[in-house]
Amino acid sequence: MIRPVLAAAAGLLFAGSAYAADVSLLNVSYDPTRELYADFNKAFAAAYQKETGKTVEIKQSHGGSGSQARAVIDGLQADVVTLALAYDIDAVAAKGLTDTGWQKRLPLNASPYTSTIVFLVRKGNPKGIKDWDDLTKKGVEVITPNPKTSGGARWNYLAAWGYAEKKFGSAEKAKQFVGELYKHVPVLDTGARGSTVTFVERGVGDVLLAWENEAFLAQREFGKDKFEIVAPPLSILAEPPVAIVDKVADKKGTRAVAEAYLKYWYTREGQEIAARNSYRPRDSEIAKEYEKSFAKVELFTIDDVFGGWTKAQKEHFAEGGIFDQIYKN
């Protein structure tokens, strides 16, 4: 009686993976891009099949940007990495897995889509949060992940720093401001998504520092009647980069597909997918089309204010760096 049922269940379970594509890519990405790449992969597979007649299957892996880079360094066979920040791909390149000049191989710093850091607040904005300095007001609880493990959190931190340096005029004051800001943080999740869940689902905190796309997604998932997005007048231009992992792609013979995959980002269709998923597109036409979807924010780049990722990483997030000092006091 039970046996045929079990056999049927087992058959169902183990027969599932019969379908196989001609080529298969592994894209190792960071946390909030799950929905983006679900969309993009489908579109690319269709376009690729139309053009070459071959089917392509793209496998995804998501996690904190740093952990993902670590996995690739330890041997996770990623054909492409699409991480939260250039520093993490630099770490992959430093181990000889890809060319150290990777960021020059694709247009626009190899960042086909961008984003910025905004505030997600509860309905009606009860604490009246409008700008960065409202975050350090008495009684405001700020949710942001741990910059040591989360790429998004590093953008959050740098955005706050950039604001403070501009407003108060010195690095010393900026350090004070950012230090004060982290005193308002009750939970440091390890990833951006973890923070969103903490804020949205568990009701902790008054404001979430989030990727713009992440804030929009939360609003879509949980309803506009629950959360509002507040865009500060000044924020950072976050450029999540993409790159081929040379060593892996060459070994697997997937370089051509991988290149086509990343280049697809720079097409109209690719840019549109980015915009639809609330990432700011690079293409000016698409940007114009979606102009209304994004708030007008004055954006500074990491090169402007911090002199690039390597320097920012060393000064702020390395062992004994400014972030560590903040948590020492």
């Binding site: 592994l26 496998k59 995804q60 892996s61 998501h62 996690g63 996995a71 996770l76």
Partner: peptide, 13 residues
């Protein structure tokens, strides 16, 4: 915990 460190989190795999 242990599996999380060695899995690589490839979806569906």
């Amino acid at each position: 915990g242990a599996v999380s460190v060695v899995s690589g989190h490839i979806r569906g795999e």
